[in-house]
Every structure is written in structure tokens, then in C-alpha cells.
């Protein structure tokens, strides 16, 4: 269960948002929208602990995420604009090293299977340098298949993905939500997500959260 209380973030000397409060519990999806520069990415980076907010408190299961630190990051996976993929490594190596970092032990064939399900059959052992932007994105998203983290923070996960990948990712998100997981994402495409619990949070331009 995530609670955010009176959060305020400043970028340079611009106050992106202030007095922002909302909460998110198991099985819920938080859809974050707002024009460019409204602080969506900054909010996500603050929530996952990469960025220290100037004001306010972020609590996970009632405890501040700064105290929890490692326990909290174990529960979170953050995929930002930058994929975190090393161009010189193959998709397989990238996936296994990222999983080890997540604390998930992934065997060789589990990795093959994950890459297969994400639609990268035949590209598994090529250096990711030769893959297209969409394929690199898929490698980054393949982590989600093997990851036990409860809380997914995805910054525009659908960019550069083709139709098939978008629907596949939607299904993966639905399964995660159904199994009690939590997802917070931003996207510019009009994507129909789940019928269930979808919370909306608008940033920028009268950014009072209507959650």
C-alpha cells in the first residue's frame, strides 16, 4: 500500500507540483497524465526513491521509503525512458544481469522463455546494439515477466512498441493487477487498460489531484 502526503518537487527553481497527496493499494492502476514538463517523470523518480522531494512524505506499508530503502526497492521495479540496457551485451545477458540486480535468480532457459514470450524469438543472443528501439524496449520489459516486485513504475512503457507488443504488455499489466500487484504508469497513447480499479492523477495546469 503506497501513501503520498503533501509531496512537493522543485526542478531547477520551478516548483513542479506541491501539496500532492494520493494513495495506491494492491490491484490498482494509477494512470498519470499531464502535458510535457508537468513533472510526471520527476514524480515517478521521487516515488521510486531516485529523487529526494523538497517537501512531503512517501510511505510504503505505513513506513517512510527513506527508512525502508532496500526493503522498499525490493518491491519496486522502475522502467524509465532510458531502458537500462547495455548495447554491447546480448539480450540474454542484459536480462540476466538486470534480474540479478533485482535479486531474482534467473536461469538460462527462464531467460530464453521470457524473451520468447515478449516476442524476441531469434534475437536472444544478438548484441542489443543491432536491435531496433522497440526490441530494446521489449528486452527492458521482459524483466517484468520474471520479476516478483509488487509495484511497477513504468514511464511511457508503450513508446516505440508495435501493436502486438502493446497488447502483450497490456495483458501482462492486467495479470499483474489481478494478482494483487500495483502499477503506476504514464502514456501518451490512448490505451484501454483494465476495467477494474483505474485511478487517474493529472499533473500540471491546475494540478489538483482528483484521486
Amino acid at each position: 500500500m503506497l501513501e503520498v502526503v503533501d509531496l512537493e518537487c522543485v526542478r531547477g527553481d520551478r516548483k513542479l507540483f506541491t501539496q500532492l497527496s494520493f494513495s495506491l493499494s494492491g490491484g490498482e492502476l494509477l494512470y498519470l497524465y499531464g502535458q510535457n514538463g508537468s513533472g510526471k517523470t520527476t514524480l515517478m523518480r521521487a516515488i521510486c526513491g531516485l529523487l529526494q522531494p523538497t517537501e512531503g512524505e512517501i510511505r510504503w506499508e505505513g513506513e517512510s521509503i527513506r527508512e525502508l530503502s532496500d526493503e522498499y526497492t525490493r518491491e519496486v521495479v522502475y522502467i524509465g525512458h532510458k531502458n537500462g540496457i547495455k548495447d554491447d551485451l546480448t539480450a540474454l545477458e542484459n536480462l540476466r544481469i538486470l534480474s540479478t540486480l533485482d535479486g531474482v535468480h534467473m536461469s538460462e532457459d527462464q531467460a530464453w522463455d521470457a524473451l520468447d514470450r515478449i516476442g524476441l524469438r531469434g534475437f536472444e543472443d544478438l548484441p542489443t546494439q543491432v536491435l531496433s528501439q522497440g526490441q530494446k524496449r521489449r528486452v527492458a520489459l521482459a524483466r517484468l515477466l520474471a520479476h516478483q516486485a509488487k509495484f511497477w513504475i513504468l514511464d511511457e512503457p508503450f513508446t516505440a512498441l508495435d501493436k502486438a507488443a502493446v497488447s502483450l504488455l497490456q495483458q501482462v499489466i492486467r495479470d499483474h493487477l489481478d494478482s494483487g500487484g500495483m502499477v503506476m504508469l504514464t502514456t501518451h497513447q490512448e490505451v484501454k487498460l483494465t476495467e477494474g480499479q483505474v485511478k487517474q492523477l493529472q499533473l500540471g495546469g491546475g494540478g489538483q489531484a482528483d484521486v
Binding site: 521510486c48 522502475y78 537500462g84 540496457i85
Partner: peptide, 15 residues
């Protein structure tokens, strides 16, 4: 690592 986002993932690793 900073340029391709791998460093962020290291910061978020539970180690």
C-alpha cells in the same frame, strides 16, 4: 551506465 540508464537500475537494486 549513466547514459543508458543501467546506473539507475543499480541504484534501485535492493543490494
Amino acid at each position: 551506465d549513466y547514459a543508458d540508464g543501467a546506473l539507475e537500475q543499480m541504484l534501485l537494486a535492493p543490494q
